[in-house]
Each structure stands twice: as C-alpha cells, then as structure tokens.
Simulated scan of single mutants.
Amino acid sequence: MFAKAISDISAQGTLFFTPKQLLYFLDNRVRQNLFSASKFGFAYLFFYLFFSIWAPGFIGGILSGILGSNSFVIVLFIYNLILAVYLFKNTNSRKINNKGRRSSARMLQILGVIILVGGMSIGIIILNSFIAFAIAVITGMVSLYLGSRQLNQIEVVQEFLLSQSQVKDWLNRWQQINGSILKILPSPKQENKPATVNPDVTAYSFDRLVVCDSASIAQLLIANNFHFENNCAILSITGYPQSIFDTTMQMLRRNPDLKVYAIHDCNPRGIGLVHSLRTNANWFLNSEIAIIDIGLTPRQIIATKRGMFIQSSPESAQAAKQLSEEIRQSLSAEELAWLESGKFVELESFTPQRIIKVLQKGIAGSQNLESDDSSLLLVGDTGNDMYVVQSFG
C-alpha cells in the first residue's frame, strides 16, 4: 500500500512531491476505506438484513418475558433507529470523506423507505395499531428528509486521520528497509549567498512569472522543471530561491509585457498574495503589469462544491477578520463569510500533477486577456489589471 501511494503521488516516479502532500495523499487513501458503501453495498445490505432478523429474534426473545409479544417489533424499531442515527452522524463526520458522507446519506434515504414500507405494514397488518403506524411514518419520513438534505450538503470541514509524525515515522522505516525515496523533497534551503549568473543570461528577461505564497510550492515547481517546460520564472513571496531572487527580479522588470501568475493557499495569508504583489516596492508597486490569480480562492472552492480537503481553525477566522479593506473589496460577501468562518484549504492537499496541470491551464487560458472566451474574471477597481481564474482545474 505504501509503495503504491509513493508511486501514485509521484506519477510513477516522474514527479517530485513534498512530505505534506504525502500526508494528505495517505490520509485520503485511509479515509476512502473507512466508509465506502458504494464499494461494499451488497455487504452492508446483507448485514442489515441479517441483524434485522437476528436482533429481534435473539434480543426480542430475551425481553419477551418483560415486554410481551411486542418485544420483537420494539427491538426491530430500536435497531433501525440506532442505525439511522449512526448514518446521520456519518453524514456530518469530519473523519469521512465526501464520498463516504454521500453514501451514508443515500443509505439513510433507503433506510427511510424501508422503515416507511415495513413499519406501516407491521403497524396495520400485524399490530393493528395506529400509534405504531404513525411512529413508522414519522421515523421513515424524517430519515428520508435528513438523507436528502445531507446528500446536498457541501464544504464539510475535515480533520486528519493521520498525523505528520506518523507519516514521518513510516517514511523513516520505509527508507531504512527499502532505501531513499528519490522524489520526496526536503525542506526548502535558505541560501542567502547570491549565486553567480552569467551576464549573457541576465541580459534576457521572461514573459511570465509564477509567484507562490510558500517556498515549498516554489521548490516543488522548480524541482519538477516547470520553469523550463513553460518558459517562466518561479519565485515565492518569501524570496525563495534567495540565491537568485534579486537577479531574477532585475530581469523581470525589463519586460513591460510581463504576466504574473499568483498561486497560493486559500487562507487569509494566501488571499493577500496579489495585494502584496501590487503594493510592495520589492515587487510591482506602481506597475501596470497584468496579475492573474490562479487560486486557490474561496470563489473556486464554493463553485467546485465538493472534493477538496477543507479545514477550519480559530486562528484562520481571526486573520480573515483582520484583512485590509483593499483585499476585502476584491472578495464577495459569500467569500468573506467563508473565510471568516475559519475555513481554509492548502495547495499541498493536491497532488503535484494536479497543481502543475491547473497552473498550465491558467497560463494557457490567459494568452488573450481581452477575449470573450477567456476563463478569467476581471476583478477590483484599482486601475490595474487583476484577473482571477474562475475554476481551479
């Protein structure tokens, strides 16, 4: 399993990845197997039918001396009620992925139908009781309603099943036995000593610049030769790689037609990346260059509806409330509410292949910014061109 995870996240050993990307990847693999009703549907159905017979027969038989002949029906009702509560809890669980939550919601709907049909039949035919009939109708309808409502829910906050220390221990153990994993990246190195660059090279410039909000993502893109294959420079807002940062910026400022692509986490710090590029003298203060926000943005996550690893923290909520007025004006009320609830999504929750494809698609889609067919949205009223990609892949 571990070997397959390493192979899959590195696209069969062709792409570098970060330790945190591996954490997200392994966590998702474990989460997929935690609850997969779609994969084991017949098994769940078998166990449901088995215990629907066994529980009333065994437990009901024991309680018949106390509850009389109705003990079998009472136990059957309690069994279905417990199962409905369990499924409903699964639809809100932070430990289960979106697919598992939706499977639980569908099963809750199916259970509602079974309770309606079976309970009404028992209430009328066997018990001849209006109260039993009414209880079955109410319980079945509630299950159906909750299942339908939970099936359409989006953006459920998730928590890690695994910890970074667990994955680190597994990595160390794996490499002790199997040798080094060649495609896993170390922490980005801080190299303050400027590198010597050939003057013939510095006489040129770039048409494109990718700016990341973290050194880890910048290192990831550089390690996977994104700059060579897409003819662009790659830097982080923190100044990575330090050894060539100043030289690269000098080269970039020579090109008045430069396009800048921002890629970042969807959190208050990441959302402020484009604003920092516009207002920081070390970057593009008083410049008319076009800046394209590739993402992640709350707009993209809300539009996608599901499939992303959304987390939440009080610190993120507090930071969102302290965003400057200029940044807040570029966000919709829905996006601000999303951020101020403390939600965030990290870029490292996506595989290297996904990040690279999204970035390539964003660059390709920005070739003609004025086109009506462009996938970009012009935002803000700052006098400068700032575009947001409407979909993160």
Rank of each mutant, 00 (worst) to 15 (best):
F2T: 00
A3W: 11
D8Q: 12
I9W: 03
I9C: 03
I9K: 03
T14Y: 09
F17W: 13
P19G: 08
K20V: 09
L22K: 05
D27I: 04
D27M: 03
D27V: 04
N28H: 14
N28A: 15
V30M: 05
V30F: 05
S36L: 11
S38P: 04
G41F: 14
G41L: 10
F46D: 09
L49A: 02
L49M: 01
A55H: 11
A55V: 14
F58E: 08
G60Q: 00
G60Y: 00
G61E: 06
G61M: 11
S69F: 11
N70E: 10
F77A: 04
L81S: 10
I82P: 02
K89M: 10
N90Q: 09
N92Q: 11
N92T: 03
I96W: 04
S104D: 09
A105Y: 01
L108A: 11
V117E: 07
M120R: 06
M120V: 10
G123R: 02
G123Q: 02
I124L: 09
I124V: 06
I126Q: 09
L127N: 15
A132D: 02
I138E: 01
T139G: 14
G140H: 09
L144C: 14
G147Y: 00
S148P: 02
Q153H: 12
E155Y: 07
F160L: 07
L162C: 02
L162T: 02
S165Q: 09
W170F: 10
W174M: 04
Q176L: 13
I177S: 13
I177A: 14
I181A: 08
Q190H: 11
P194R: 01
P199S: 06
A203F: 14
R208M: 06
V210C: 15
S214H: 10
S214K: 11
I217F: 04
Q219F: 07
F226A: 00
E229D: 13
N231W: 11
I234S: 01
T238H: 10
G239K: 08
M249Y: 06
R254A: 08
D257W: 13
I263H: 04
C266P: 06
N267T: 03
L277H: 08
R278S: 01
A281G: 10
A281Q: 15
A281R: 12
I289F: 03
I291A: 09
I310L: 12
E315L: 07
S316L: 09
Q329I: 08
S332G: 04
A337G: 15
A337Y: 15
L339E: 00
F344E: 05
E346G: 10
F350H: 06
P352D: 03
R354H: 15
L359F: 04
K361Y: 11
A364C: 07
D372K: 04
V379F: 06
G380Q: 05
G380S: 05
N384A: 02
V389P: 03
Q390Y: 01
